[in-house]
Design a protein around this nucleic acid. Structure first.
Length: 338
DNA sequence: TGATACCTAAACAACT
DNA sequence: GAGTTGTTTAGGTATC
């Protein structure tokens, strides 16, 4: 199976020529500017199969994994559009435990991420719901899963059998009679039975929330703990002042070296005039950059500058990066509050 | 402890 | 014939 893992040129703030020593702009203890949660954050690999069924995958996105040492010309090309590198925010994310896919030490990240927490039924549901026509052939479901959950790029192929097994066995999905006038290749199109959609959505919500709860995001107690333990993270010469919270900046610094970076493409959102006021603050760059830092018990997430993210948005960013787009967008569709 | 949900593997037939 | 798709069965684990 094709492995879409790409390397990322060194983007650490240490080496960023335009990295300002900027104090953090977000404080969990202060009112945050409102920002609309992106309806979708496709985390698709940089090179996508042309037959990719998902409209989300039409973006020129890149799911880039950590690399601090090597780069290739193509990588550099990919980065030429990253004009947002001029400015960064660093957000204290949470104390341990790490994100689900980072349960192993970040510095020892495997090439493939951890297994997504979603059941195959949920994966199939997300795949179908994410398709423009709300119907997909089996191959399309495969591709959606692979493109959105990197784990399955390298997983043994047995999961495909499980997908088919679920499709056949689950009452939630039903096979549509193939229109032979359309050239869709082998097999039939699968869709979600409307009567089972609420149940599927409920399962998805539960899984989604369950796996976002173990990283209590930006709660004040974390910051207070940091105060108690005398922690301030610094990145090179840049002191992380602890957002607007002066308590963090008053502590002795510890070195902060990026341990994990990801570039995540976001879909450019077509905005109507009416929707302009809700413009995605991350939408300009086309990418979200994840920089995971660890300073003792804390993680930090570097976001592109001008990211007037509210806590809700940040929490989504903290979710399993593989699943956030699919689950988040579906929950948005369902009107769920993250 | 039993029921349930889910995962995984395997076999097989039908189809392209 | 090879590969894919769809169905079915079986056994295992985890959770409630």
């Amino acid at each position: 199976m094709e492995n879409h893992t790409h390397t990322l040129p060194c983007l650490s703030p240490i080496h960023s020529p335009t990295n300002p020593s900027k104090a953090l702009s977000l404080s969990p203890s202060l009112p945050q500017p409102s920002a609309t949660v992106p309806a979708s954050l496709p985390l698709s690999p940089p090179s996508l199969p042309q037959s990719s069924p998902s409209h989300l995958l039409q973006s020129s996105g890149g799911f880039k994994s950590h690399c601090l040492s090597s780069s290739t010309p193509s990588d550099q090309d990919d980065l030429t559009c990253l004009n947002w590198l001029h400015q960064r925010n660093i957000l204290p994310l949470s104390k341990m435990p790490l994100l689900p896919q980072f349960e192993t030490p970040i510095s020892n990240l495997p090439s493939s991420p951890g297994k997504p927490p979603y059941s195959f039924s949920s994966l199939i549901f997300m795949a179908i719901e994410d398709s423009p026509d709300k119907r997909l052939p089996v191959r399309g479901i495969y591709e959606w899963i692979v493109n959105n959950f990197p784990y399955y790029r390298t997983a043994p192929s047995g999961w495909r059998n499980s997908v088919r097994h679920n499709l056949s066995l689950s009452k939630s999905f039903h096979r549509m009679q193939r229109d032979k006038s359309q050239s869709i290749g082998k097999g039939s199109l699968w869709c979600v039975c409307p009567e089972y959609r609420p149940a599927l959505l409920e399962v998805l919500k539960k899984t989604h929330y369950c796996h976002s709860n173990n990283s209590s995001l930006l709660n004040n107690s974390v910051l207070l703990e940091a105060v108690d333990h005398g922690q301030t993270a610094t990145c090179d010469n840049m002191a992380i002042s602890g957002l607007d919270n002066p308590t963090l900046s008053s502590n002795a610094p510890c070195s902060l070296i990026p341990e994990h970076e990801e570039l995540v493409a976001i879909q450019s959102v077509e905005l109507t005039d009416e929707a302009e006021s809700e413009k995605d603050p991350l939408g300009d760059s086309g990418y979200i950059e994840f920089h995971y830092y660890q300073c003792e018990r804390y993680q930090y997430l570097v976001l592109p500058g001008n990211s007037d993210l509210d806590l809700e948005t940040v929490e989504i960013l903290q979710l399993d990066a593989e699943a956030q787009e699919a689950a988040g967008s579906l929950l948005d569709l369902a009107g769920g509050n993250h």
